[in-house]
Amino acid sequence: MFIQPWDAALDREEWQQWIADGHDFGQLSVNGPAGQAPAVVPTHFTVDGDDLLIHLARPNPVWRAIEQDPKVTFTVIGDYAFVPGPWRAGPALPPTDGVPTSYYAAVQFTCHAHLVDAPEAKAELLRRQLAHFQPEGDHAPVAPDQPPYGRMLPGIRGLRLEVTDVRAKFKYDDHKPVEHREAVAERLTARGQALDEPTARQQRRRLDRMGPWRA
């Protein structure tokens, strides 16, 4: 992932807070066998300390690839929108000369994948995930010897992704003048399609923290 200086995370806390704000679905990318394309699996995940926790169905074809090469990438993308060219035209240019772009936030984790296969270890992984996704606790006990999860545990495998590197990108035209960024955020809010509003919030948040771009 190419990151311009003005697109980089301002600090570690920025991308951590963005993940914590509900960005808990991503894509696991694993190296395929020689001559084959990498495999990509969309899935929810849970943060556990510095690690990521996921589980997948046992028939998933990624297991063989992970066993052969445990170095994987996990990518989370969100708060994205298409920005039309006329919105980005400079004040001295006709609107049709503006060049469109995409706004988005993305965090890429480089990880060493550790397989979780022991029944109690898988149950604990699921308990941690449920504590995140169903904090009300409105679910049956997750235990290897109790239904319904006990009979289902053999059908899944867990992964603890030990994060070895993080690359975070917040692409919101932060190198443009303040007036330009404010105007685009207003237009995104007014358009109100798909993820326009959260995209505008990210642009305004970065603007509040950064102000005018300084190299």
Rank of each mutant, 00 (worst) to 15 (best):
G90L: 13
G90V: 09
G90H: 13
P91N: 08
A92S: 15
L93P: 00
L93C: 06
L93V: 04
P94F: 01
P95M: 04
T96G: 00
V99H: 11
V99F: 11
P100L: 09
T101D: 10
Y103Q: 05
Y104V: 09
A105G: 14
A105H: 03
A106C: 02
A106K: 07
V107E: 01
T110P: 00
C111P: 07
C111N: 14
A113V: 15
V116N: 13
D117W: 01
D117C: 00
A118P: 10
P119Q: 07
P119G: 09
P119L: 07
E120L: 12
E120A: 08
A121S: 11
K122P: 02
K122G: 07
A123V: 10
L125F: 05
L126F: 06
L126E: 00
R127P: 00
R127T: 10
R127H: 14
R128W: 03
Q129V: 06
Q129P: 00
L130C: 07
L130T: 03
L130V: 00
A131E: 11
A131N: 14
H132M: 06
H132V: 14
F133G: 06
F133H: 13
Q134D: 15
P135W: 03
E136P: 00
G137M: 10
G137H: 05
G137N: 10
D138Y: 03
A140D: 15
P141Q: 03
P141W: 02
V142R: 05
V142D: 05
V142I: 14
A143Y: 05
A143D: 15
P144D: 03
D145I: 01
D145P: 02
D145W: 08
Q146F: 10
P148D: 06
G150R: 11
G150M: 10
G150P: 02
G150V: 09
R151A: 15
R151K: 15
P154I: 08
P154R: 09
I156C: 08
I156Y: 04
R157E: 05
G158W: 08
L159Y: 02
R160S: 08
R160G: 06
L161Q: 03
L161R: 05
L161M: 02
L161I: 11
E162G: 07
E162K: 02
E162S: 09
V163N: 00
V163C: 00
V163M: 02
D165S: 05
D165G: 11
V166E: 11
R167I: 02
R167N: 03
A168E: 04
A168M: 05
